[in-house]
Design a protein around this nucleic acid. Sequence first.
DNA 1: TATTGTATAATTGTATACAATTATACAAGC
DNA 2: GCTTGTATAATTGTATACAATTATACAATA
Lengths: 228, 228
Amino acid sequence: MADNELIKEDEKHPIYSLQTKVFEKLREDILNGVYKKGDELREKTIGEQLGVSRTPVREAIRQLELEGLVNIIPNKGASVVGLSTKDLKDIYEMRARLEGMCARWAVKYASEKDIEKLEEIVDLSEFHCMKERYEKVLELDNEFHELLYNMADSKMLYHVMADFHHYLQVIRKKTLSSHERVINSSKEHRDIINAIKNRDEELAENCAILHIKNTIQNIEEHCLWPEE
Amino acid sequence: MADNELIKEDEKHPIYSLQTKVFEKLREDILNGVYKKGDELREKTIGEQLGVSRTPVREAIRQLELEGLVNIIPNKGASVVGLSTKDLKDIYEMRARLEGMCARWAVKYASEKDIEKLEEIVDLSEFHCMKERYEKVLELDNEFHELLYNMADSKMLYHVMADFHHYLQVIRKKTLSSHERVINSSKEHRDIINAIKNRDEELAENCAILHIKNTIQNIEEHCLWPEE
DNA sequence: TATTGTATAATTGTATACAATTATACAAGC
DNA sequence: GCTTGTATAATTGTATACAATTATACAATA
């Protein structure tokens, strides 16, 4: 049996069930292209690879099916669907609009502390950008948007945005490795913050939409869409 | 053991696994308020009620957790989260924007046949409205939006909209039982169709947004939000 | 009474067993 | 050579067994 990553992590995070960990591992692997479109996911094989029985693997695959990342044919098996370039583009377009909604709603609910926190994140991000520590920049970008999603104070909106965020993770890693893009992104983040500060819903929405649209444009310009 | 609904349906739909059927049954029951917020979902109990073992129930509950309808605490159990009135409102707001996107994209991809089909649906709907057959009207409304979602030709957008659609099913049943609302809804549907016919993306988007906004307003006016 | 400890029961988490379905290999017949 | 039928293997679907965790009941103690 292969040396087993999941059980090792068990010691560190005994909070999560094996099922959850298998799910996250498989999702990660699908989104990162470890499994490619059409690959078949055999319960037994995956279970052996991860050192668990079929049960948690099955449960994980069922969840992946609900997310649309996997296709299950009853009594036959599961195969990887994954995300095409068009899927990613569509997600960005949806995200643009919903990010706008987020910013608009954040205006309504933002506390002074939230806004300070947003500014801190951007400050730190610019610092790490200067030092060219882009993993940190990505992390902080995640924090920025995560906080924004929380500020909107909507369980459902958060839920959708969190899903999108996972889907886009791989490509965001690329966009936020460009010094120039990070600089621009920071400016756009500050525009959003200022709009929220001034309690200007319309402006906040437009800034947030523009931010995502610019991200898309950047991806286009630098040909960062995944080759299929 | 209770008389068992799931196995009976087995004869009719042997395509779906028990797991799928348990999932759909539980989701339906949660959305319809059969299970209320906070109710605990015991695998053994539900399995006995439905005449299946714990395994498919477990898998179904895991899926419901991913949808956010259920909260699982490891080693403790699953409890119903369900949708609050605010959740429903937020979903409508998101849907308004994404429905707009749908209409916009549908303009790009709509075939003559699609448009004809849309018109047929509205014609039929108005006919059944006249006859006060509102279950039929609901069915056709579903068809209209389903087709629109398909016309947008986006797997991801369809996926999100399909989820929303399930979530809103209960309340849509109420709004489309009002003669007046159905009449207005039909007009709005025709506006959307005409915009698509004229290949006017901007107008199509705005009409679709307005359609959902009007739906929301109708719900407000008639106090159709669920009492909590 | 309130609290704590402990034994018991209930419940979940995981693994495994068995049934049902599907895939594969290969020989028989054309 | 190609199809078809059949036996075998592989895989999934479901149920169940067992382990681990959590809840419950209740007695002992302050």
